[in-house]
Amino acid sequence: MIEATGIKEIIKPENLVYRKTDIMTDNILSYCPGCGHGTAHRILAEIIDELGLQSETIGVSPVGCSVLLYNYLDVDIQEAAHGRAPAVATAIKRLLPDKFVFTYQGDGDLAAIGTAETIHACNRGENILIIFINNGIYGMTGGQMAPTTLEGMKSSTSPYGRDIKSMGNPLKMTDIVATLAGTYYVTRQSVHTPANVKKTKKAIRKAVQYQKLDKGTCFIEIVSNCPSGWKMTPTQSNKWMEETMFPFYPLGDLKVPEE
């Protein structure tokens, strides 16, 4: 047994400040060290726990690194074909309108193969929450270039950096979605520092509460890192994300409901 404990006298149930919520299962996450997926899973689980929605939540997991979402969240999860999570979520929400339905997708899933499903689900104003993890790369398959890859960013299929002339421009999916009439709340956040985690948690809580109002799609982009795909250490990747990703994908609300 490895000992990694602080002062024993303080460790009492009445002094507890923070522990992992029970909605996160005890399975070891399959993500690489430092990956933002784990943090995003955990804050989503905390919101579900705090609002008491465990039995009313149905999630739709994508194809990508987070395909094993059902192993980590103790709620109902439906697997969807690649990119089709918003379409599956639409069906679930229409058949079971009392449930809270969310999709959790990466950029390869949502912004590449699932562009049509995403845009049309948002345009129809389906009453679901879409969580979009954007790390600018196809993380699971080995770091290939995705539509969201930045100009000049190196990936395994653009080893000299993305060249706009031959490979096209990076896609700002959240900005596109924010222009659609069907969306109710669109925001872009990140989870690499404690302050950003708190902001993202607030955004997810708001989005979950908006579901009850039946006003339209809520869309939350989480700009995340991919230490393995970017070939960096987790702390380096967080720093690189701040310096390079945030100027192109600025954090903040893109569409807020009018009070």
Binding site: I10, K12, N15, L16, Y18, G36, H37, G38, V191, T193
Partner: peptide
Amino acid sequence: CANCAMVCPDGVITVYKT
């Protein structure tokens, strides 16, 4: 302050305070 627990991707840190 629970900053460490908040950013831990694997949720392995439990925090106590008094």
